[in-house]
Design a binder for these strands. Structure first.
Lengths: 137, 137
DNA sequence: CTGTTATCTTCACATCTATGAAGATGATTC
DNA sequence: GAATCATCTTCATAGATGTGAAGATAACAG
């Protein structure tokens, strides 16, 4: 026996929490602003390409390399290197220095090694195990 | 899309190093295989979206939240949450648990907090400053 | 069983991304 | 000055990505 004729139920619930409103509100308050998430995502997006990862790994190993050497090391074309290095520059991950006709790149940020190592740990590849002999930290 | 992972790639392309052939060869030998770079990039790609970053931050703060609460906290639609949570699941970043009609998500990996913190440090936002009090690792 | 709620999946599409080709820029040598 | 080399930029385009709409699934209430 029901006569409730599908009375329009107020949709004040679609926008609110379902299960734990208090907790949700508390968490939402503590979350950083949209801009921070956006910036973080953009940082990770720069690292979200195998070619750029190889460029970074090459610079981690080699310290300083010019574009054509980076191309040879990573297997990327020179053009692809240039494109990708530009993104890395924009993300303040690499720094460059002209020397005659060549442009030499180095890593600009000490955090990058840590980021890659933690990423490798996440994958189970045992990140912090690279003892190249010339750098240890 | 691209080339096969660390198979036997007949890479006799432009091996014409320009400036420091010895160094380049040495660095190339020490680089991990293509597959590792690819996996690393894919891991970072999962983090390369503001919505997913917000989901992770929410779980870092809240510990365990159901989908609708996550939607309310992050500001994403429920559908977008579901899509993004699937990617996070595929990347083994979150774990889920059914409880009645709800599905509760938690972070599945201790490295994620560190990744985000290092990313924030890179941005100059001072990452490791969150003491929620209920979790210590 | 039927209906409702929470979540997931499939499809579709607008947007974004990666990269080669071709030309521009900057540095060096003649 | 011209020629050459290393690198960068612009443009074009195939392919990847994010997300809403709509339907499917699962769990519960009655």
């Amino acid at each position: 026996m029901k006569m409730i004729p599908d009375a329009v139920v107020p949709l004040e619930r679609c926008e609110v929490e379902c299960v734990e409103p208090e907790k949700a509100a508390s968490v939402r308050e503590r979350l950083p602003g949209e801009a921070v998430s956006q910036e973080l995502a953009e940082t990770f997006r720069v690292l979200a390409d195998a070619g750029r990862v190889r460029l970074i790994l090459a610079l981690l190993e080699g310290g300083e390399l010019c574009v054509c050497d980076l191309a040879a090391v990573t297997g990327l074309s020179q053009t692809a290197c240039s494109h990708n290095l530009r993104l890395l520059r924009a993300g303040r991950i690499v720094r460059y220095r002209r020397s005659g006709r060549n442009v030499f790149y180095t890593l600009d940020d000490a955090h990058i090694r840590l980021l890659l190592d933690v990423g490798l740990q996440h994958l189970g590849h045992e990140g912090p195990r690279r003892s190249t002999g010339n750098r240890n930290d």
